[in-house]
Design a protein around this nucleic acid. Structure first.
Lengths: 342, 342
DNA sequence: GTCGTTTCTGGAACCGCTTTCCGTGACAAT
DNA sequence: ATTGTCACGGAAAGCGGTTCCAGAAACGAC
């Protein structure tokens, strides 16, 4: 009743209920061997004192914490938004804490490893991070359940996308509209993802009988801008616009890039899709509302799938070997790519 | 050297360095009374064993954890993106963990309180949450540093915006373009923010000599959509379009709403800004790239300011009474509201 | 009525680290 | 030779729980 607070511990509860602390602990952990009678007394005491077990102490004692951590290189992009959305639903039910490790783009490795080594994490989700061998070793030695999103690694549950096929679909779509000069806006990194999307781009061109021209691939490399950002898309588009033979369609490796590109076009009075068609990647929510065609990676579902399986592993219910789940991006056609060329 | 792992404790380090555990602890906590010589030996041992102090044990012992928690009702909107951006920079330097408490929209109160009572948080940022008196009491009793963003409460450091003025500026801008029938798209909630923005809307109309018509205020109330979402903006715009006398400009209380509204307009072949002008709120990053006028709330700066002060409080360097920091949103004019009426 | 079980509970060690309280030896200052 | 730092060791008491072990009570069976 008295909301005095200032550290209500398990001892207070024990005293109040007239039992030993071990008994209180049993009640807390729903141990079967405690009489209904005592359990009730304890429960009432807990209620009355408004007691909540201390997360840290608990974790310390039972070696292994019910904490799920998510490590993301760039948390602050809308790209991960729906992923988190898928995750948080399942998290609410369980009594888990979400620890966020926002790795900067630089020194990701170091930050991550330090984070892990400090322990206190029983489940970890890595998002959009290249898992090098030393990181992999680190992950294994920490003995936590791990799932990797956006990268494929045989030793862990990984969820990834068929980037070749995704790019192929996007570009095939553009070629199908009659475009012959299809540009590509990419990030300047040489990540697996980027390479595969370029492969897909080439494959689609080849299938359509369009020659591949490296000069049609641009990236807006800037010191201060991340490769997938609006700014870089803006820069890249400008590069494409000064070519002798201009492009009539552009495939971008992110929606943000596409937005930036779109702005560059608008500034020059170039219409989308009449003059230039645009297709993005990620299918961010706003794309639907601005009419940007995009590749849907079903982020939310992937998030749900990953977290469900991860929670199973954490609770020890799942012991099968690491799985690899590949999703194929779906094209969402919107107004930015609806105009058919002659 | 051997990466054997499996719990390297402070004892291992002590043994390896040939010192007592208390000395190791002193080194860890940068106590002044330890010779440079010994310090180096210990540091080397730590390095060699790859030892990281256990976060939980540490926190438990030194009563008070270096953990910053952020509670957000709806993490998954781009609205908070730049806020987090401002926060994380400062967080990287310190050795803090970021605990995320994503309150669902429902039962916010319960979720938050439970979260807090489990302790282990020395700093807390509440974002976009109405601080009721019981929550306030809760916050005080937990003895952590608290800062509130997007709401004003005298007992805590709070960072908020002058919503009346923000709305007034937006609408004044529209009136200045010659618009007479200016609609408003709001969320269906009766939050402080909403009420104030309506006040600002009225004030601006009055100043411009335009009569206030309640039927020009619409909200896209839907069971499944949050009030600030694209979907609700879309719905609301549709309502405004079926009015006898249509509006020529719309002020939206979020950029997402504006995006949704814009889509509704596009579907009907209504041009922006020629037929209808649009102004949003929040100045989300993509707004800049799609050309949506908006009210800039300087989220990133607010995030930085708040976290800086919060960290000061957490470290005990700051003891002055709670401050209240009010920011005034700035209008960013873009193409969605550049057309001047006759 | 005694013995073996089962059931419930109390006591105590322990998780990994911090911190306090001496105590000691070394070395410089007086 | 005495007094004072300075740097460190050793031991022990937490922090708030969990968990193992043993003992007490309750129960049924012979």
């Amino acid at each position: 009743m008295p909301d005095d607070r200032s550290k209500v511990t398990i001892y207070d509860v024990a005293r109040r209920a007239g039992v030993a602390i071990s008994t209180v602990s049993r009640v807390l952990n729903e141990s079967p061997d405690v009489s209904t009678e005592t359990r009730k007394r304890v429960t009432i005491a807990i209620e009355a004192l408004n007691f909540r077990p201390d997360r840290r102490a608990r974790q310390l004692a039972q070696q292994g914490s019910p904490t799920l951590a998510i490590a993301i290189p760039t948390l602050t992009t809308p790209f991960h938004t729906s992923l988190l959305k898928g995750i948080r639903v399942h998290l609410r039910e369980k009594d888990l804490d979400l620890l966020l490790c926002d790795l900067g783009s630089r020194e990701r490795h170091v930050a991550l490893v330090q984070f892990l080594q400090r322990g206190a994490v029983s489940g970890l989700m890595l998002v959009g991070l290249k898992v090098t061998e030393d990181i992999a070793a680190e992950l294994k030695s920490m003995g936590a359940a791990v799932s990797i999103i956006g990268y494929q690694h045989g030793d862990f549950d990984s969820y990834w996308w068929d980037d070749v096929e995704g790019a192929r679909r996007a570009v095939t779509h553009l070629a199908g509209l009659g475009h012959q000069r299809i540009g590509m806006i990419r990030s300047s990194s040489d990540s697996r993802t980027q390479i595969r999307r370029i492969d897909g781009y080439r494959a689609a061109l080849q299938a359509a009988g369009i020659p591949f021209r490296p000069e049609l691939i641009a990236s807006g490399h800037t010191e201060k801008h991340a490769g997938y950002s609006e700014e870089s898309g803006y820069e890249a588009m400008k590069k494409l616009l000064v070519l002798d033979e201009p492009v009539t369609a552009v495939f971008c490796t992110s929606d943000a890039q596409a937005m930036g590109a779109w702005m560059a076009l608008r500034e020059q009075g170039i219409r989308v899709p009449e003059d230039i068609a645009l297709v993005g990647y990620d299918d961010v929510k706003t794309s639907r509302f601005v009419g940007l065609s995009s590749m849907d990676q079903a982020m939310q579902q992937v998030g749900e799938q990953a977290v469900t399986r991860l929670l199973d592993r954490m609770s020890g219910n799942l012991n099968e070997p690491a799985g690899s789940f590949c999703h194929t991006p779906e094209l969402r056609v919107r107004s930015s790519s609806t105009f058919r060329r002659a």
